[in-house]
Design a protein around this nucleic acid. Structure first.
Length: 354
DNA sequence: CATACGTGGCA
DNA sequence: TTGCCAAGTAT
């Protein structure tokens, strides 16, 4: 019993000592040992942006958001379209919709302050198990069990957990819970994430410099990269679609996609549904064709742009799937906040036109 | 428990 | 070039 506690403390201390030496410097992070108080708004915003998204991709967005909306109250008061446009290019757009819903819930239901408990945070829109635990630990010093993909990898290897994800999560949590630092839970969580991101990497882990290599059960194994075991991936189907370039007086017609589904709530070019089969010759034969290939998480898409005149008797409004649209000046297209798929298409179209 | 949901970087 | 992967959440 005492031995187990001693080993746990030893693991925790070694991880924290390594973090004190090796912590990454990140815009949303307070350096270990600093006297600064974390701002729950900035911690939460960064955690949401970082969901399934790399540090490099987030940095610029985090800077722009915090500059434009310095507090959760500022964000709650923002226009939906401005926030969606500011999120454009970052992906997983449900996060942006939930971000606004969460900010407004904090203002409306919590007096403008984030709940300081894991359970309170977990009840907010877009805040799942990971984000609730990480904000509780980092912003409020709660000894929450934080588990992200980095920490899963570190623990699965250290304890040689062979169970496949997501079933392995239960064992990982059980192994991690007794190791959590009561004194520095936020630093402990960030330390393990840094360790996973920079030392215990998916491929070619640097076991030689790992602070917990002494008792790592996977250390030295030629198949260490196998852990954590993941389920086999399914093949991605290929789909096709048409988008319309409708131009008038130096502007093009943009619509807003429905909240649910792909690119939900984002501004986009009008067009037809995406189908399993290529579009018919008749549509593709028109002038002004540009084509892009784009890979989504669960399917690949070939999207063909067709120049189209809005017939006088059929107002362009009817061409937008959401029935909602706007004439957007082509010269200001950068500010439209188009997701990458459409951004690729318009970039290519303008390059071609010049 | 499985699936939908973006994007960019790296080997 | 193709596949893998990243501080996950909602349903």
């Amino acid at each position: 019993m005492y031995f187990v506690q001693m080993m746990a403390r030893d693991f925790t201390d070694r991880v924290l000592a390594w973090y004190d030496r090796s912590a990454r410097v990140l815009p949303w992070r307070i350096a270990p040992g600093s006297a600064e108080t974390p701002d729950p708004y900035r911690i939460w915003l960064a955690e949401v942006m970082l969901q399934q998204t790399t540090v490099a991709a987030v940095a610029g967005y985090f800077a722009r958001f915090t500059e434009r909306w310095p507090t959760v109250g500022d964000l709650a008061a923002a226009d939906d379209a401005d926030v969606m446009a500011a999120w454009a290019g970052l992906g997983y757009y449900a996060r942006a919709r939930n971000l606004l819903a969460c900010a407004r819930a904090v203002v409306t239901d919590h007096g403008g302050r984030f709940p300081d408990s894991e359970a309170g945070l977990r009840a907010l829109p877009g805040v799942g198990d990971y984000t609730a635990a990480s904000v509780a630990a980092i912003a409020f010093g709660r000894a929450a069990v934080v588990i992200d993909a980095n920490i899963e990898r570190v623990i699965a290897r250290h304890r040689l957990i062979e169970t496949s994800l997501p079933a392995a999560k239960r064992e990982i949590r059980a192994a991690l819970a007794p190791l959590v630092s009561d004194d520095r839970p936020g630093d402990f969580a960030q330390a393990l994430m840094d360790l996973g991101a920079t030392v215990c990497t998916p491929r070619s882990p640097a076991c030689g410099i790992c602070p917990v290599m002494a008792d790592c059960r996977a250390r030295g194994r030629p198949d260490i990269e196998r852990l954590p075991v993941k389920p086999p991936k399914k093949a991605k189907p290929h789909r096709h679609g048409i988008a319309w370039w409708i131009e008038r007086d130096g502007a093009i017609w943009l619509i807003r996609r429905p909240d649910k589904g792909m690119l939900g709530g984002m501004r986009a070019l009008p067009g037809g549904d995406w189908a399993d089969d290529p579009p018919l010759e008749s549509g593709a034969a028109e002038s002004g064709i540009v084509r892009v290939d784009h890979g989504f998480t669960h399917f690949d898409l070939t999207l063909t742009l067709v120049r189209r005149e809005a017939p006088p008797e059929a107002p362009p409004e009817s061409l937008g799937a959401a029935g909602e649209g706007i004439w957007w000046p082509i010269a200001e297209l950068d500010a439209a906040g188009l997701p990458t798929l459409y951004r690729k298409l318009t970039d290519k179209m303008l390059e071609r036109d010049v």
